[in-house]
């Protein structure tokens, strides 16, 4: 079968979305729509069959669609989600974290060939991992060799250089929590950082508090990160946030064997289990 053109995929998306809304099975279909800029799209919730014609598909559809499902944790009807590979990993993440129920979702999977988003260069799963209907021909999953290249290069710097680099980044950070709000792994009902009375995290947007926030968040999501890059996409200060979480993934890979998250809703996380034969450095 010949490769589908963007326009054909868009038509198929609209048709599937319409079908789902017409049967009354879903309350809305989450996808993308055009903006007044040619190279920008925005998330769009189609709520009637007619509105489905607003849905678009092009290489600027970069927003993650999955996390919107968390806006209503107890929906009356199913959510329709137009999901690329990364979105399905996010869905698996949130189902595994027991924040979503599979039966509350109607997933229109779309095979994605990468978008105008730097993170797509390291994409290993272009084909949706879970869906109700699939648009496009599935492609082979390949973990790119460049997955940890950036991390490895950074590890070669001296400790002081590394610290200086991060200090600079955290000086820039404005402590806005955008990364947390976009991250599918950040799905706690009440984030540790919002609990000022417990005193885990200070409010100030200074280097000290930003460092604590950055490292804590990296540790909290590090063993559950699905590498979708939403954190970096939404960061208003363009901080290299994935460089922290990927480091955790790399170490888990090195220490406990090949590791990717969000491939199924059943998987266990690296910090949620152990093996008695794990390497031991603390003897």
């Amino acid at each position: 079968m010949a490769e589908l053109s963007e326009a054909m995929v868009q038509d198929l998306i609209r048709a599937e979305a319409k079908k789902a809304l017409q049967t009354g099975e879903v309350s809305c279909v989450i996808g993308w729509t055009a903006t007044r800029f040619e190279d920008r799209t925005k998330p769009y919730f189609a709520q009637t069959p007619e509105e489905c014609d607003m849905l678009i598909w092009n290489r600027y559809c970069i927003n993650g669609t999955a996390k919107f499902a968390l806006d209503d944790r107890y929906p009356d009807k199913k959510f329709g989600i137009i999901a690329r590979g990364c979105d399905t990993r996010a869905i698996n993440r949130m189902i595994h974290d027991k924040q979503l129920k599979r039966e509350n979702l109607y997933i229109i999977g779309v095979v994605c060939d990468g978008k105008e988003n730097p993170v797509c260069r390291q994409c290993a799963h272009k084909t949706p991992l879970v869906c109700d209907v699939m648009i496009g021909e599935p492609v082979q999953d390949v973990i790119p060799e460049s997955r940890f290249q950036e991390i490895e290069a950074f590890e070669k710097l001296s400790p002081d250089e590394r610290y200086a680099y991060w200090a600079k980044q955290y000086d820039k950070c404005i402590h806005c929590y955008a990364c947390r709000n976009a991250c599918p792994a950040c799905n706690c009902i009440e984030c540790y950082a919002d609990q000022y009375r417990v005193g885990w995290q200070g409010k100030a947007a200074d280097r000290e508090q930003n460092q604590i926030y950055g490292l804590t968040r990296a540790y909290h999501v590090g063993d559950r990160c699905i590498e979708c890059g939403e954190c970096e996409r939404v960061c208003p200060m363009h901080l290299p946030i994935m460089r922290q979480t990927r480091k955790m993934l790399k170490d888990i890979n090195d220490l406990f064997g090949p590791y990717e998250c969000g491939l199924s809703e059943e998987e266990t996380t690296a910090l949620g289990e152990f093996k008695t034969a794990d390497p031991d450095e603390f003897m």
Binding site: D97, K98, Q99, N187, C188, I189, E190, Q195, T269, E273
Partner: peptide, 20 residues
């Protein structure tokens, strides 16, 4: 009131004392 019910605590308990 704060618990998200993610269940990550459940497998860490050696006594199976935690349930959802």
């Amino acid at each position: 009131t704060k618990c998200s019910g993610c269940g990550f605590c459940v497998p860490t308990c050696p006594y199976k004392a935690i349930s959802l």
